[in-house]
């Protein structure tokens, strides 16, 4: 975070480059998750209100209540109010889908933008390396720490200092690892989108067992590489 202007020879290879405070990306990424929860809950409550008006709740009132609640809910996954409309698993799935799709789109765009000066990738491993080094540095400002593969289409990327988790912390016993999980879904989508843009269909799963580390597992879908 800085107000100082960047000194000239910033980026000779890319005259279109612009600078953006990394804090704004941080804040945007932070807000994506609670926003996805809010939108999902709002959609669910408005659709349930229209589909079953017999419950007697007026949709406009409901949305007003939602508006009012917004402030308080802010960053908490609003589990309590969700239970009324969606059960936990449904909510999780729906939020995951929302974030993952957004990430997918971002990943696709990023690859088009940043692989334009490269030659075609020879094989899947080259693509994964590009992902681990170049793309990871672009999005998370560091490279992946460890890459493992079973040479049968499964790649495991370990980042011991996953950027979005670097400042994640709760009071002792605050279930930090559990609450960190939704913050992996957008990056999952970015990875999957990036791979898709480079011609690799894959499923991507991520998990963390201890902050600030994160492990991404990429399973390429056979016959597509």
């Amino acid at each position: 975070m800085s107000f100082e202007s960047v000194m000239p020879p910033y980026n000779s290879t890319d005259p279109t480059a612009r600078f953006l405070s990394s804090s704004s990306l941080d804040f945007l990424l932070i807000e994506m998750v609670p926003m996805a929860y809010r939108v999902t809950n709002q959609l669910a409550s408005s659709s349930s209100a229209t589909s079953s008006p017999s419950t007697g709740s007026d949709p406009t009132i409901q949305s007003q209540i939602q508006e009012g609640k917004k402030e308080e809910q802010e960053r908490e996954p609003p589990a309590a109010s969700a239970a009324v409309v969606l059960d936990e698993e449904e909510l999780r799935e729906s939020v995951f889908f929302r974030l993952e799709s957004i990430g997918y789109r971002v990943g696709q765009g990023l690859v088009e933008r940043f692989s334009r000066d490269r030659t075609r990738f020879g094989d899947t491993l080259d693509v994964i390396k590009f992902l681990c080094k170049d793309l990871w540095t672009l999005v998370f400002r560091k490279q992946v720490d460890n890459l493992k593969t079973n040479h049968r289409g499964v790649y495991v990327l370990t980042d011991n200092q996953f950027r979005p988790f670097s400042r994640m912390s709760t009071e002792p016993g605050g279930q930090a690892v559990l609450r960190a999980q939704p913050f992996l879904w957008l990056p999952c989508g970015i990875v999957r989108g990036a791979l898709a843009a480079m011609g690799i269909q894959a499923t991507v799963q991520a998990e963390t067992t201890e902050l600030p580390g994160a492990v991404f597992q990429i399973k390429t879908i056979a016959g597509k590489n």
């Binding site: 941080d26 990424l29 998750v33 402030e71 994640m168 609450r179």
Partner: peptide
């Protein structure tokens, strides 16, 4: 900048993190 800390810290919520 802590993703798990709310914007408003009612009752000190999110401040007392590790």
């Amino acid at each position: 900048k802590n993703p798990l800390s709310p914007v408003e810290h009612k009752g000190g919520e999110g401040v007392r993190n590790e």
